[in-house]
Write a protein that binds this DNA or RNA. Structure first.
Lengths: 333, 333
DNA sequence: TTGAAAGCGCTAACAA
DNA sequence: TTGTTAGCGCTTTCAA
């Protein structure tokens, strides 16, 4: 079986290679009949141009890189799905990289990417406190970069984020508005920066809208049993009437503690939680959630990146997407 | 800023391009001193070879394609993570494609891939009942293909799967062994083939190990409220003492129904479910689960594919990985 | 041990 | 409207 390249098509049709090339790209300087013939043969032989060749020639690959910490929670899965929708629609491909929280790995990925492998990069920064010389280098090389979710204000690139601070205010205020007098905030160990931002929102809302004398912040570890014990202890000692969980996992643990100590949600205690889990609605019909627009973050970031790659100009498009507060009462009557 | 290609390195060092190329590939026919100099400069300038150029020249890209239905549940996220581990370790990259259950899209992806863009393909077939002419074409073109999870016996490629049938037998038998006399099977609408395989396992176990006079199969829709109503109805009418859920989502709904109708798990009714959700352990301390080795499926499939790409020979390595039954009693005492 | 040069498949500038 | 040809950056054969 002969390999089917543009030269083969040209020979078959008794045309010059360049004519075939132009016909395939639907150039206006090729007669309709010729195009017709070329298209027909290309289709019949299922001709696919070699992307290395056109990439080498044109210095573009139609591939973007997506660099994220990992996929252990639903958030990034949803982001990826959003990205996929856009790349697929616009004829792009994407390579996926996980840094696993390792800044050095991020640096290494970014460096090996800056060589024509990809036309642009979508990045959720692994360690927002670390330096980003590697990203500035990427900028210097002129490779489009769009940051999402975990961004760095020190960089001038387009950023797509969600309203972590405002939505934490909203969530806390929601508890206050529904009558909570003593609201606890469940946070995870400090290494997750988003936990701190959300904490600020919690504090802000308490100060502005509540008479609660002091904040009540419980820092939990990643160990479920430890978290369980800590939350139980706090519940019994402090007797809060509202809980704001910064992560869904903590809310689920909290929910189980409530079961065990016979606290009814939402009658005895109200719980609100950040959540991306699609099964959240199933877990507990009374768990009010704040959901980040993960899919939309992916879509928006990808759209922005492709816009830059195509030099469509327009304003520098930082975007902050709104989280949604979903109050559940009786999911299935 | 000059672009840093191999020619630039050669000029800087007063060497021929070919010498630099050989040095970079650590060829034995280059003197240690020369290599030293080349490495040093390459490192200092952060030289990265252009993958299009080497790909074009060498007819390989160091990229594989991963084609899956979607990422709406944890299973494929975990598979991807396993694939990433292997590609990353072996210096490969991967492109990710979602077919969204659309066979035509799968055909289109496979066709556009067969042109040097990737060195191999990892595929979980979208529609196992459809024809796979496109895959046979891929085989004819000599592009390595490894199938995982959703495979086709009509194809001769390496297949990596898990023991859906056997583990369904195990799960059912587990219920029988712990004393259940009337076990219901919750399945989803037929379009998910794995549901049918698991059903066979359920039937097999009933017949072999139980005296239950007739199977009790409830087919649920994808709508949660509908599923809730159906399960509730079945529970009240049939009063089973064991439930085998073919999907975690169904188990969660089932769990909520039990709460509502005041059935205690596992005292009044035992529930076992397939599950990949990492938070499963949190949901219900008494939910026994069967977990597919999703991460390992990804690892194994990727390893097999890279082995084939590198023509490392060896036996044709179909692999069936074992699911794990996890019985939970008191997760957090 | 090193260098010169062909050529991977494609696009586009230039020529006809 | 079509054809000829240079060259994208790299690897590798052949020559020195």
């Amino acid at each position: 079986m002969n390999k089917i390249d543009i030269r083969y098509l040209a020979k078959e049709l008794n045309l010059a290679i360049s004519t075939v090339s132009r016909a395939l790209r639907d150039s206006h300087e090729i007669s309709p009949e010729t195009k017709e013939k070329v298209f027909a043969l290309a289709k019949r032989l299922n001709y696919q141009p070699n992307p290395n060749a056109s990439g080498l020639r044109g210095q573009k690959s139609k591939i973007i890189a997506v660099v994220i910490p990992d996929m252990v929670n639903d958030f990034f899965s949803l982001v990826i799905s959003g990205i996929e929708k856009i790349t697929q629609a616009q004829g792009y491909h994407f390579l996926l990289y996980f840094t696993h929280g390792d800044h050095a790995l991020e640096v290494s990925f970014i460096n090996t990417l800056a060589n024509g492998r990809v036309d642009g990069v979508l990045l959720s920064i692994t360690d927002e406190n670390n330096n980003n010389e590697h990203l500035e280098e990427l900028n210097r090389k002129g490779i489009p970069l769009v940051l999402f979710d975990r961004v760095s204000e020190r960089l001038d690139n387009v950023k797509v984020t969600s309203d972590n601070y405002e939505s934490a205010v909203t969530a806390t205020r929601h508890l206050i508005d529904t009558g909570c007098k003593k609201i606890a905030y469940l946070k995870v160990h400090k290494s997750i920066p988003v936990g701190t931002i959300r904490e600020s929102g919690y504090l802000e809302a308490l100060e502005k809208y509540s008479k609660q004398p002091a904040p009540l912040i419980l820092e939990c570890t990643n160990d479920n049993d430890e978290a369980f014990a800590a939350i139980r202890n706090m519940l019994e000692k402090e007797k809060p009437d509202g809980i704001f969980a910064s992560l869904e996992k903590l809310a689920v643990v909290c929910y189980r503690v409530c079961e065990q100590v016979q606290l009814k949600i939402p009658e005895d205690i109200k719980v609100i939680s950040f959540s991306n889990l699609q099964t959240a609605a199933l877990l507990n019909p009374s768990l009010t959630t704040i959901t980040q627009p993960a899919f939309e973050i992916g879509e928006t970031a990808a759209r922005e990146l492709l816009r830059i790659i195509r030099k469509k100009g327009g304003a520098k498009g930082d975007v902050v997407l709104k989280s949604r507060l979903i109050e559940r009462r009786s999911t299935s009557k």
